[in-house]
């Protein structure tokens, strides 16, 4: 009898844990959606801000975020994938390989603001790119590089050796085997990792704080050397700067909703893709 009571109470407490967690997160999403939905409109998504940030849309911020994210992926994807291929297919036990493995493992947990400082010192000042889309993209690229390397490497190492051996036995060279046999097998797993990194890059604020972001710019960015507005930074700026908080909060709700939607949709897509792929392989 006593055991049954303990079991029931224990399981009740566990259920409460997930209920409280769910409640908190539901509240967050509810408040952002219910306050943000009124602000969203076609004009909000396509117009630049007006009247010093108190009216108009946030189109330049959306475009800026898009450029920063795409730039980060353009840099990080080829580098990270090449790195993973080298690690897994060419030199799994070499000195460079183990050095990369150690640094990838340890950089994954480094706070994003530290990456931001690195970007400021290296890209903005040392290389002289200034506060620009280029600096911001490169900083974000370095931020997501460890994740891309490790997920791609995992994907490659999940490809069974029999596939490589079959390809080599048919007379294919090492590089042909990688291109035609190994990469297609690992494709969807790599894609999942990349998409999750895109979601991360799109939502990060601290790394672009000193490397790319501007609070107010009337125009769209015209080159990779110009400062840019970006959605996550725009939310922060609306809440901490400016002169008319009431109107700014409403706009910030709109931005938060857009950002939340973008990130949730991207990562949901990635996870659905991964589960489908796992089922196929199982």
């Amino acid at each position: 009898m006593k055991n049954i009571i303990i079991e029931k109470t224990g399981f009740f407490l566990i259920t409460m844990c997930i209920a409280i967690t769910g409640l908190f997160l539901a509240l967050l999403i509810y408040f952002i959606v219910s306050n943000g939905i009124n602000v969203l409109s076609f004009e909000f998504l396509t117009q630049p801000p007006k009247n010093s940030m108190t009216a108009g849309g946030v189109a330049p911020a959306i475009v800026g975020s898009f450029y920063l994210t795409v730039g980060a992926v353009i840099v990080a994807l080829p580098l990270g994938l090449a790195c993973a291929i080298y690690l897994n297919e060419y030199s799994p036990k070499g000195l460079v390989a183990s050095a990369i493995r150690i640094s990838v493992n340890n950089l994954a947990g480094v706070p994003s603001v530290v990456f931001g400082l690195f970007g400021l010192a290296f890209f903005v000042k040392f290389l002289g790119f200034g506060i620009s889309i280029l600096s911001g993209s490169l900083t974000l690229a370095i931020l997501i590089l460890p994740a891309i390397i490790s997920t791609s490497q995992e994907a490659l190492s999940a490809v069974p050796n029999s596939i490589r051996e079959a390809s080599l036995a048919l007379g294919a060279t090492h590089s042909q085997t990688i291109r035609k046999a190994v990469l297609p097998c690992a494709f969807s797993a790599i894609l999942t990792g990349v998409i999750l990194s895109i979601a991360r890059a799109a939502g990060e604020t601290a790394p672009i704080l000193f490397t790319a972001a501007a609070f107010y710019k009337r125009d769209y960015p015209d080159s990779i050397f110009s400062e840019t507005m970006a959605l996550p930074y725009h939310i922060y700026a609306l809440m901490t700067e400016g002169t008319s908080p009431d109107k700014q909060v409403a706009i910030a709700y709109g931005c938060a909703l857009i950002l939340l939607l973008i990130v949730l949709v991207i990562s949901a897509g990635a996870i659905v893709l991964r589960n489908k792929y796992r089922r196929q392989n199982a």
Binding site: G80, A82, L87, V96, I100, F118, F122, F126, I142, L145
Partner: peptide, 24 residues
Amino acid sequence: AIKFIFSCLAFSCLLFLLAIVVIL
């Protein structure tokens, strides 16, 4: 040549990652 290219890319990756520590 292909192997060389991959090792160069991997090596530059490593440089980037190490650069963070050096710069800090």
